[in-house]
Design a protein around this nucleic acid. Structure first.
Length: 572
RNA sequence: CGGGGUGUAGCUCAGCUUGGUAGAGUGCUCGGUUCGGGUCCGAGAGGCCGCAGGUUCAAGUCCUGUCACCCCGACCA
């Protein structure tokens, strides 16, 4: 491709309100342009990257037996009513008739399968597609990181038995790992919550990045990693388990309606406080939840336990349950009989401090089981850095940020059951199919790659997904010798199967150098003053201070070798 | 949906406190200059100051409403 024929509107400055690096560089490099919140056009360079990523995904899907197809984006209302997902809140509705825009395709593929598969002989099956998805995200963010319209690979497995189902899940996990490695990303799979898709087994693929949306916890001893929202929180061992605890004492603590204030006022660490929250369960009934003072309630764990989202109760309910204003609730002497649950760690608190269920008053020397009946103990807090690893008592959890680029789900018979996808087994018996679904955010992967690979001058694309593998900077297009040498090299590299961009613009050299860096093309060849001595200058974007002078006649062969070496770094 | 912020030239922003002729840089066009890391000098084009209403002799500036976008939370590839 010749630069003069391309459309690459670069910007010297990115908008100040674009904060994520990938967002800024995608805009500055002329890869994307916004149309609306979370809705972007892919300009020529952006599309080239998307296509390269998509191609890698296709190859890895075919490798595990995937078959590509393309399903509609327009869903009739009745289809989603079958599984109840017509109530999903991210759905876009299409007006004249009752259609939804496609957000994920479990129902569509299951509808096809239930009609066209009758026999175990037709299984297993692994259809997939790469397609634009529509989700009315409440808050799009970070450019391509979180969009209302985005490109996704979605795959669906259908199997006749659990062994096949497990194999499909494991195959897909491996395929995903290979995809991200080949895209030049440092990724890891973590245990995850299955969310709206449902099902039992679920893992996310994370690209580690300081600006990632998700928190990942990793065990220092083993390879175990989990999304923080999902990671089991192991209680810290009790200190002074045998120490005598004095009898209860009520103290005045004026104006201390949060843990921090109480801790500071009494000079007692938050670890000895017991936080008492009142939540409204899914049935509307209040539930009292106890946590150690320094811990955070995990909404997902609570929702799972109580059977639905359970937000904090309003002040009126708190007053009714505790007899006190917000901030002074405690497990001792509650007004109304309510269910009381606690994080397991609360059982380890000795000589604790709790709200007295009276304004500006707390109780000292509290002992669970002595001063109030033991509540039901569960894993309810969010695990954090320094916690004991759930898989190895010697291990400690370390925290990192990540961007979720892929997610695998095993949902068993969830969709085949609700939609009636059955087949006849070897004995002629009707059975439900087993399935899983698997997604990769293609456009998000593009952003994640930049988050992980950039420097002050711009992007550092891995060669496998770079818009071009090589850029030839023709320094003086009006110099016939330089132009001829650049054209020859351009043609030779194309013949050698290399994706090459010839910067043939009538621009000052500095502009071309700066933009080559911004655009992140892995190999740069400068055809300029060195040509007087018969040489071209070759450098890598990631180490641009190391420049090699290569004889013009040998340049094509040298660069081919270099490109092959770079390709090999991200091959499997 | 809750909280915070921003809307002024293609892009990045100043001007608003204290109302009085619409600004800079960059980009674009033209002339010259320079010629291997976003040259320099000069000239020029380019504006519904997000939109609607109000206050005022007078509104980019003050008030009310509204829309859009960005950031932080609840959700997800």
């Amino acid at each position: 491709m010749r630069f003069t024929q391309l459309f690459v509107p670069t910007l010297r400055d990115a908008p100040k309100d674009a904060e994520m690096i990938s967002h800024r560089l995608l805009l500055r490099g002329g890869f994307i342009r916004p149309l609306s919140s979370g809705v972007y056009s892919y300009l020529p360079l952006g599309l080239r990257v998307l296509n390269k990523i998509s191609q890698i995904l296709r190859e890895e899907m075919e490798r595990v037996g995937g078959v590509e197809m393309l399903m509609p984006s327009l869903f009739p209302k009745e289809l989603l009513e079958e599984t109840g997902r017509d109530k999903v809140d991210v759905l876009f509705t299409v007006k004249p008739q009752d259609y939804f825009l496609g957000f994920t395709h479990e129902e569509v593929i299951t509808d096809i399968i239930r009609k066209d598969i009758q026999s175990y002989k037709q299984l297993p099956l692994l259809p997939y597609q790469i397609q634009t998805k529509f989700r009315n995200e409440p808050r799009p963010r970070g450019g391509l990181v979180r969009c209302r319209e985005f490109l996704m690979l979605d795959a669906y497995s259908f199997d006749k038995d659990e062994a096949g189902n497990q194999l499909a899940y494991q195959n897909m996990k491996e395929a995903f790992g290979r995809m991200f490695t080949r895209c030049g990303l440092d990724s890891l799979s973590v245990e995850a919550d299955s969310g709206a898709i449902g099902g039992s087994q679920s893992e996310e693929f994370m690209v580690l990045s300081a600006d990632g949306e998700d928190t990942v916890l990793r065990c220092s001893k083993t390879g175990y990693a989990a999304n923080a929202e999902r990671c089991e929180a192991v209680p810290a061992p009790a200190e002074d388990a045998d120490a005598a605890v004095p009898t209860l004492e009520s103290v005045s603590t004026p104006g201390t309606s949060n843990i921090q204030a109480v801790s500071k006022f009494l000079g007692i660490p938050a670890t000895r406080l017991i936080k008492t929250l009142v939540v409204a369960g899914p049935d509307g009934q209040p539930v009292v939840v106890l946590l150690r003072g320094d811990r955070e309630l995990n909404d997902a764990k609570l929702a799972k336990l109580l059977g639905g989202p359970s937000p904090l109760a309003d002040a009126a309910t708190v007053l009714k349950v505790t007899g006190a204003p917000l901030g002074f609730a405690g497990p001792v002497g509650l007004q109304a009989p309510v269910r009381m649950i606690a994080d397991r760690e609360v059982a380890t608190v000795r000589d604790g401090v709790v709200g007295a269920n009276a304004a500006d008053t707390h109780l000292l020397h509290v002992q669970p089981g002595r001063d109030f009946p033991h509540p039901e103990y569960f894993d309810l807090r969010t695990a954090g850095a320094g916690d004991i690893s759930p898989v190895d008592p010697e291990g400690r959890l370390e925290t990192q940020r990540g961007i979720e680029v892929g997610h695998v789900f095993n949902f068993g018979t969830k969709y085949s059951k609700s939609m009636g996808a059955t087949f006849s087994d070897e004995n002629g018996t009707t059975q439900l199919m087993l399935g899983g679904s698997y997604g990769v955010g293609v456009s998000r992967t593009m952003a994640a790659a930049i988050e992980q690979r950039h420097d002050d001058n711009g992007i550092l694309w891995p060669i496998s997904i770079a818009p071009f593998e090589v850029v030839i900077v023709l320094v003086w297009p009006k110099d016939d010798m330089q132009r001829q040498a650049a054209e020859d090299l351009y043609s030779d590299l194309r013949v050698a199967g290399i994706d090459v961009l010839l910067d043939d613009r009538e621009e000052r050299p500095g502009v071309k150098f700066k933009e080559a860096d911004l655009l992140g093309i892995p190999v740069k060849v400068v055809v300029g003053k060195g040509l007087a001595e018969g040489t071209l200058e070759v450098s890598l974007r990631r180490s641009s201070d190391q420049k090699e002078a290569i004889a013009a006649q040998e340049a094509a062969a040298y660069i081919s070798e270099l490109v092959n070496a770079l390709r090999a770094e991200v091959s499997l």
